[in-house]
């Protein structure tokens, strides 16, 4: 058997969704951004809502998300994606609107926009990539950087006494009455990818049903910023990030009470 015998349509078990463009991703090999992009686009494709969905790209490594996500997109100023999404959604209430934001974007410069969009219960979906660092600008400390964690602006480790504590935005917004669905996941193993996709789907379904703001955090690696190999970064993430940022569904207003 040679390779031509294997590469045949009937043998195909996985295909990239057409809602990702042909542009090569600008992300570092091993980075979680790529998988997160794919999951969001797969959900949009499977729900058949691509022609009425508008995505908002942030400032951060995913600033070029609009190059890769094959739907109408707007690029927002640093931290302002939830306000931009609000602006779009209020005038196109029957469209689907989502933001895709890093932790610096969502939990530092854009904290006010995030909290108020959640608190108003804007009928949008926020996908939040938490990698504990500023990837794009070269690995500076983020609001989510763990205590003691090194970054280029906390070279001796984050000293919480002088640099403040890491911010758990996801738990914070779960307290707000405007959020209907809040979950935290990861995309570094097939099992986690499946769970994340299920949650993203639910988030968009809740938006369809006009239940309020749905918020999905993805704890992700930044192998470049953390200065590790992709494999080491995933292991480090499991050992250090997950205990501080535990995975699971934090809030689901429709969850059946046990």
């Amino acid at each position: 058997m040679n390779i031509e015998d294997i590469i045949k349509p009937e043998n195909l078990v996985f295909k990239k969704t057409g809602l990702l463009t042909e542009k090569p991703l600008s992300y570092c090999p091993g980075c979680g951004h790529g998988v997160a992009h794919r999951l969001v686009m797969e959900v949009i494709e499977e729900m058949g809502i691509e022609e009425k969905t508008i995505g908002i790209a942030p400032v951060g490594c995913s600033v070029l998300a609009y190059e890769f996500m094959n739907i109408d997109m707007q690029q927002a100023a640093h931290g302002r994606a939830p306000a931009v999404a609000t602006g779009v959604k209020r005038v196109l209430p029957d469209h689907f609107v989502f933001t895709y934001q890093g932790d610096g974007d969502l939990a530092a410069i854009g904290t006010a926009e995030t909290i108020h969009a959640c608190n108003r219960g804007e009928n949008i979906t926020i996908i939040f990539i938490n990698n504990g660092i500023y990837g794009m600008t070269g690995g500076q400390m983020a609001p989510t950087t763990l205590p003691g964690m090194r970054s280029s602006t906390s070279p001796y480790g984050r000293d919480v006494a002088s640099m403040g504590h890491p911010l758990k935005m996801t738990e914070l917004v779960a307290h707000l009455p405007g959020t209907c669905y809040v979950a935290r996941h990861a995309v570094h193993t097939p099992a986690n990818v499946t769970k994340t996709k299920k949650s993203i789907r639910k988030a968009f379904e809740y938006q369809r049903d006009k239940k309020g703001l749905s918020f999905v955090e993805i704890v992700s690696n930044c192998n470049s910023g953390w200065k590790m190999t992709p494999v080491d970064s995933n292991q480090w993430m499991e050992e250090n990030m997950f205990p501080f940022y535990p995975l699971g569904v934090i809030k689901d207003i429709d969850a059946k009470t046990k």
């Binding site: 707007q74 609000t86 926009e113």
Partner: peptide, 13 residues
Amino acid sequence: IASINMVYGAAGA
């Protein structure tokens, strides 16, 4: 800051 960015979003539509 939020209002002008809301304007950006709606004007972009």
